[in-house]
Amino acid sequence: MNELISISEASRLLGVTIKTLKIWDNEGKLKAHRTLGGHRRYRLSDIEKLLEIENQNTERNVFIYCRVSTKKQQQSGNLERQKQRLIDYCNERQYNVVHIFI
């Protein structure tokens, strides 16, 4: 049996927004199955297949942009914490950080 998952779970697994999934459904990139109530459900096997294709065909290079609004925020360490959180996020998702803009 092919497991169906919710749109929020598919969004989490793919690392894209729910809005993106809806666009992909409309474009035919990743078709959703509708419940009787009209909710979108995705086949887990389709998600896994798309992840394999994405990992094979794309470089996952990213640029990080960090900023604070005031000198006080910078002095209290907000900028460094923000930078570290973004680096951790990229590392968890196996993105290659090309450059950090501060």
Rank of each mutant, 00 (worst) to 15 (best):
M1Q: 04
N2K: 13
I5F: 00
I5D: 00
I5P: 00
S6I: 00
I7R: 03
E9N: 13
A10V: 12
R12T: 03
R12W: 01
L14H: 14
L14I: 14
K19E: 08
K19M: 14
K19F: 11
T20C: 03
T20I: 06
E27A: 01
L30P: 00
K31D: 02
A32W: 04
H33I: 15
H33A: 06
L36N: 08
L36D: 07
G37I: 07
G37L: 07
G38N: 07
R40S: 03
R41F: 01
E48D: 12
E48C: 01
L50T: 07
L51E: 06
E54F: 10
E54V: 09
N55R: 10
Q56H: 14
N57Q: 15
N57S: 14
E59D: 12
R60L: 11
R60P: 04
N61S: 09
N61V: 03
I64A: 01
C66P: 04
C66K: 12
R67W: 12
S69W: 04
T70S: 15
T70M: 09
T70C: 11
K71W: 08
K71D: 08
K72P: 03
Q73N: 09
G77W: 04
E80Q: 12
Q82R: 10
Q84L: 12
R85N: 05
L86H: 06
L86M: 12
I87Q: 11
D88G: 07
Y89M: 05
C90L: 10
C90H: 07
R93T: 04
R93E: 01
I102N: 15
